[in-house]
Amino acid sequence: MDDKKLPVPQPPPSPERRRFLKRAAQVGLAAGVSGIAMAALWNALSHPVIPRGYVTTDPGILRPPGALAEDEFLAACIRCDRCRDACDTKAIRIFGPDEGRLAGTPHIVAQEHACNLCLLCTQACPTGALAETREVTQVRMGTAVVDRRLCVSWNGSGACGACHTICPLKNKAIRQGLYNRPEVFAEHCVGCGLCEEACIVKDRKAIRVFSERAWS
């Protein structure tokens, strides 16, 4: 009989080996979880937030009314979707998971769907990230800015007045001059974005809301 074909008896798994395997699985699991956490953290920190006092042509992120300053808002918001549920006009949208530290936070795209300042979201927020606001005039979402080269009333191609008509604080935030030329008064403008939604200029709106936190 050939000795080589005999099965080699294996030693039974020892308690040390079992303990080592267990420990290894544990360490692996911990490393995996902390790895995911670190990756998420890296992703979150690598997304730049526009610093204050920075003048830009990027209108910035328009947060719902009552929102704290951007950094405080990102810290306080728990991404619970209650403001989106509360929003009757479905103006509030939620950032998707690929947006880093912005993921899950509410924002408004004014030129597609503007806020109508019902302020229900400020009552719905459980953390105070959207501070409870009762008066429309206390809202500071941002400021509308008119681009006089694009506005039909300003560049001489017509007389429109759509933004003035829809403005909830008309004759305070937006006043009209000759040929319905709109002028924005920043101390009254709350930044709801209704003017941006109503603007008749195609492709690029002549009046846009710059979020307060981005440039003031």
Binding site: I36, A37, A40, L41, A44, L45, D71, L74, A75, C77, I78, R79, R101, A103, G104
Partner: peptide
């Protein structure tokens, strides 16, 4: 992490 980086991270997991 929340204290250091001001990011509520656990909510994602």
């Amino acid at each position: 992490a929340a204290l250091l980086f001001s990011v509520p991270l656990l909510g994602y997991f």
